[in-house]
Write a protein that binds this DNA or RNA. Structure first.
Lengths: 170, 170
DNA sequence: CCTTAACTTCACAAGTTTGTGAAAGCAGCG
DNA sequence: CGCTGCTTTCACAAACTTGTGAAGTTAAGG
């Protein structure tokens, strides 16, 4: 038994839980700084740091010490953003929420991303300011930059999928 | 005179001001959705849509209908993020705030970007969860993804500078 | 040096956001 | 079909944010 190595099984579990919780709160903190709201950030981080990659509402509520209502709201947001998917655990009435590694960071780079909305606003700005005015030209260049970035993303994700294989992550 | 084209000079100016303001508020709105706080977003948008690319505190306050205090706070934030630079207008005591097109979106992709902080948190997570645990592996893959993205950014910005020339923006 | 224009800081009031408890809604199972 | 257990919705209280007015600081110019 691991007691002979200086700790009990329970202490091991406890240490693991503490490590997990520290990571969850720290990573969630970064997501919050980047603009995500707190509860979805914490839930997302908790799923990322779970062994199975999926947890039930009850588990999330317990681990994060929040009410079912809070979980419900946050999880709706996350599924809308395609960062998490909902499954019904067969043979029970619990919902399971899962991070699909691929899925979620593909979502980061895809169609209705933040970038697209910026581009729309910028495009309208160029038109209404006039493409031939100094202001219009400045906004136009910004637009050109984001369009360029957008055009590069596809290729980048292709290269990632390639690179991923070389790392032995399947 | 442009009155013969159906509008007065004043009306032209007014129309331009309205167009500018609509753009400012719309683009700022997108920045807010992406996580920036409202006042910095509005000020940044106002600078972007200005003809000279630079405005004084007073101009910003007047155009956005906010107090000097609000301008001061927002501008401090923007300069810390390297999105705007402060100049002293020579021969006066006014400060001028400027968007340097290059500078600001280079800032988006550089060193102390959001990405780096995410990576730090993820790296710590892998260590404390254990690289050989399921959770540690999942967090590790996420880390690998962001490291990959980071490694691609340099090349992308190089290609942008190239592409920029072909667009005739110098 | 003193004046004064400009910027900054601070305490606070108004306005939002966030998460909760309680009630209502759903769906699988007996 | 009606229990029962899970999820969602809603109104509200608490906590946090945001922008303001006013006082404080700085430095250019006389």
């Amino acid at each position: 038994m691991s007691q002979e190595e200086g700790r009990t099984r329970a202490a091991d579990d406890d240490a693991a839980a503490v490590a997990r919780s520290r990571f969850v709160e720290r990573f969630a903190g970064q997501l919050v700084e980047a603009g995500m709201t707190r509860m979805p950030a914490r839930i997302f981080a908790a799923l990322l740091a779970s062994d199975s990659g999926a947890l039930t509402s009850a588990q999330l509520g317990e681990q994060l010490k929040v009410s079912p209502a809070a979980v419900s709201g946050a999880v709706r947001y996350l599924t809308q953003q395609h960062m998490v998917s909902r499954e019904r655990e067969p043979g029970t009435r619990r919902d399971l929420f899962r991070v699909h590694d691929n899925q979620w960071y593909e979502a980061l780079t895809s169609r209705d991303s933040v970038l697209k909305h910026w581009e729309d606003a910028l495009r309208e700005g160029v038109e209404s300011l006039g493409a031939d005015t100094p202001a219009g030209r400045r906004v136009g260049e910004t637009l050109a930059f984001f369009e360029f970035v957008q055009s590069e993303l596809g290729g980048m994700m292709d290269r990632w999928r390639e690179h991923r294989k070389t790392l032995g992550l399947d």
